[in-house]
């Protein structure tokens, strides 16, 4: 059900790509990727199956030790993360950001970021200031 909603929402957003004015009030705000021209799979596929790709990939990366897949979570983040006015990365699970925006709308909890880094560099140099 949530997937259907998400698909409808995101396809709707895609139709209005680029124009914020076209976004419906209350709908998730799908930010544009900061680099690259296309995703690792067609957008409709990603909308429905991105979690399957990630679920499959985590077995391969962690348990088998295979690196360099285009389906790595770090890869998703490197394109879909945003920067703030100061040029610093905004965590991808922050309100209104790529992952969180849709998941909040669909009321689907993301479990990834209790452990995974939320920005490409993952930590940066100001770790000690983090807590």
């Amino acid at each position: 059900m949530a997937v259907m909603v998400l698909s409808a929402v995101a396809l709707g957003s895609a139709a209005h790509a680029g124009s914020d004015a076209g976004a419906h009030a209350g709908w998730p705000h799908i930010t544009k990727p900061i680099k690259g021209t296309h995703c690792v799979k067609p957008v409709p596929y990603m909308l429905r199956y991105h979690f399957d790709l990630l679920l499959h990939q985590r077995e391969i990366t962690l348990r088998k030790g295979v690196h360099g897949s285009k389906y790595d979570l770090t890869n998703c983040i490197s394109c879909h993360v945003n920067k703030n006015a100061n040029g610093q990365y905004i965590p991808i699970n922050a309100p209104g950001q790529f992952c969180q925006s849709c998941h909040e709308y669909a009321a689907v909890h993301i479990d990834c970021f209790s452990c995974h880094a939320t920005t490409p560099q993952g930590g940066g140099d100001d770790q000690t200031a983090a807590r």
Binding site: S114, C115, H116, A117, G122, G123, G124, A130
Partner: peptide, 11 residues
């Protein structure tokens, strides 16, 4: 946890 290393997820 926040600001984990990308190669060492922990939480």
């Amino acid at each position: 946890e926040k600001n984990q290393k990308w190669y060492n997820p922990r939480g």
